[in-house]
Design a protein around this nucleic acid. Sequence first.
DNA 1: TCAATTCGGACTAATATGGTCCCATATCAA
DNA 2: TTGATATGGGACCATATTAGTCCGAATTGA
Lengths: 157, 157
Amino acid sequence: MLRISRITDYGTMILVHLAARDGRVCSASDVAAGTHVALPTVQKILKLLTRSGLVVSSRGADGGYSLGRRAEAISAAEILDVLDGPVAITECSHSNSQCELESLCQVGGAWQKINKAIHAALDDITLADLARPARDLPVHALTHGITRTVHRHDRNR
Amino acid sequence: MLRISRITDYGTMILVHLAARDGRVCSASDVAAGTHVALPTVQKILKLLTRSGLVVSSRGADGGYSLGRRAEAISAAEILDVLDGPVAITECSHSNSQCELESLCQVGGAWQKINKAIHAALDDITLADLARPARDLPVHALTHGITRTVHRHDRNR
DNA sequence: TCAATTCGGACTAATATGGTCCCATATCAA
DNA sequence: TTGATATGGGACCATATTAGTCCGAATTGA
């Protein structure tokens, strides 16, 4: 349904939490307590974020996680790329082969344009924006109406 | 992965096909032959499109489908709404209940902004645009780079 | 050494999606 | 009236994806 995965949703909460700690390392348990997401899930997501470089880890006793970059330098597009896979509204089933019907259908190019627009929107919003109250967000091309969008964090706890 | 479903992908091809027939009714078999999508799948999608009003049907012998509106009056957002469910990047697991953690997390509003941007992009592209070669598309805010996006129509045939 | 912690990945369960099929209903024409 | 040709509605199953948990290894500091 053109929606982000829960992992991405939780991951964003986790990153916001780390951003609020501004540099201080934070164990997985701390993050779980702070975000109310179940610990094993938090651990899994922090590993993903670490491998991608968005957060850095220190091992051993008193180890933990902190942001790999300033929150202003992390875009929503990156977060989605890391946790949700590449932002690509359409895809080929064989990642390296072109679609056999590509020449038959006129649609491909248009989806690419739409994809670009989405990517642009995601590039324009940073983790710092996500950590701020919504009214302070940059507006850019955000001009249209919207279907109801509610958050969903009431399960994995 | 923030991608549209195959149903939506096929559905768009089907709509483009109908748009090309400009008014003349077209049976499900015709559409299947024209789009190279398997007949049962075409039937299923045409039913969805009919229920939503994007196409109109006539039953009985010599029946078939045609667009319910001019292609210029059908937006990509509508197509996604009908075939992919509402365009809403986040959602509540219980559709009517607010997220219990909503007050605890700062993220909700920001996803809504992103969602708006995506919706705006989808509203700006019509079925008529989708039926045209890509280079003729309106550009609007389409300014950023993009990850590779390939079409995938090489399975369901 | 021991406790605390991350690292890597296996594994299962739940959910969503894709795709097919069946039968009822409607329409047209012979 | 009957038969051929369509759509309408939905059940159904197989598969893919996602969520979530768990385990043992490796690392670090006291």
